[in-house]
Design a protein around this nucleic acid. Structure first.
Lengths: 224, 224
DNA sequence: TTATTGCTTAACAATTTGATAATACAAATT
DNA sequence: AATTTGTATTATCAAATTGTTAAGCAATAA
């Protein structure tokens, strides 16, 4: 999820494929292409793209059929799917959205608009995903303010939660004390260094899990 | 929601206003018009339209500003907002969609396309708004403003209802006090923090059900 | 108008959280 | 080994947050 996004484009018009591929690759995406519905499904299974752009009118299987088939499989439950179609064929649009597409684009579309829309979709996805952090037996739900260790719910006070959440957000990274102070307490409040220790201790105690290690003279980091 | 749909059109070009108004009225909508951003906001508050069509380029306040301002108020959270702009001004489109518009149309637009798009939007809206929330023994009917616990009807005052409805809309999610204030009271009214507590208390009391929990220093959440 | 209901606030109680000091401990350095 | 430096632990107190009640308006209905 942190590397290059993969995009699969399925369209039966070679020109469109080429234009889109060029523009998306220029933008830094990894692009795969398919010339019809069957190829699209095959390619999707093979490459597990983050986003699939489906032309609605295609030989063998049209875009809506492809979308339906893919959505049946767990692997593609979360994949972004966008339809592409000539003119705003209203009926198709409705069907497309019912099918579980994430967006619907009409041809002709300027590459620039396409790219901004795609970026917007990824941004939206990231927001949804980023609320829960999963690390081994540990689960941090930022939206629900809940921490679970092997399913057991653990109650942390606010600062404790924020601190753990910060550290766990980048496992392995050593957070300097100063960094922690800035992130959790802000630059306006001034608290002593011992305060951090105390909170760290409480977290360790409550979690009863050896996951925060001290880097003497530097700071703390979360691991495993 | 079951009667004639009200549509507000805001555009500084009289010709456009007239054409759109004529076509939409012919189609059976009730139409209001505004010639600039300020008028649009005023008219929106007065008529509470189901759909607002905003020209992007307008005197005093442009469409995006208008949209932003309206979206801040609870009354317009669900209102459909559509932008209208000369040619596909890409940058504007991106901003518009980020602002929380429901669609984006480019001039010139044929009345027929406009109407089909509008109908599509209303159709989609009707589907989205599931008026009844079921959670265990609890049943919340947003349309009828009724709450039932094991079939027994419970009468909540409006704010109480809205508050419960908000929390129950995303069980488990912690709603920050600020979030609650924005959603229920809007950004214009300013009420004290204790107000929320009191309403929460009344809900707990009336429901006689342990379903709203406090997350100290953060907010409240609904669960089970 | 009067009565009723709902919304907001003030005041105070109860609770929880956060910060610090004091002390103990551990590792590195001299 | 003694010293220094840095962290862990614990207990305590202060501060922040929320719960509760009562009371005053405002809006609405009778």
């Amino acid at each position: 999820m942190n590397n290059v996004k993969k995009i699969l484009i399925a369209d039966d018009e070679p020109d469109i494929l080429e234009i889109l591929q060029f523009n998306l690759e220029t933008e830094g995406f990894e692009v795969f292409i398919a010339k019809n519905g069957n190829e699209a499904i095959e390619a999707a299974k093979k490459h597990l793209p983050d986003l699939i752009i489906l032309d609605v009118m295609m030989p063998y299987k049209n875009g809506i059929e492809v979308c339906n088939l893919l959505r049946l499989q767990p692997a593609f439950k979360e994949t972004l799917i966008v339809f592409l179609s000539a003119l705003s064929d209203e009926i198709t649009e409705v069907k497309g959205l019912e099918t579980g597409a994430d967006d619907y684009l009409t041809k002709p579309i300027s590459p620039k608009i396409l790219i901004t829309k795609i970026n917007a979709l990824f941004r939206r996805l990231n927001k949804k995903v980023s609320t829960i952090i999963q690390l081994g037996d540990l689960e941090i739900d930022r939206e629900k303010y809940i921490i679970r260790n092997k399913g057991d719910e653990i109650v942390l006070a606010r600062k404790e939660f924020e601190l753990l959440s910060l550290l766990a957000g980048k496992p392995g990274k050593v957070f300097l004390r100063q960094e922690i102070l800035n992130q959790i307490w802000g630059t306006e409040v001034i608290v002593g260094d011992r305060t951090i220790d105390v909170h760290i201790r409480k977290i360790r105690q409550k979690l009863n899990l050896d996951c925060i290690s001290t880097v003497k003279g530097v700071g703390y980091k979360f691991e495993l």
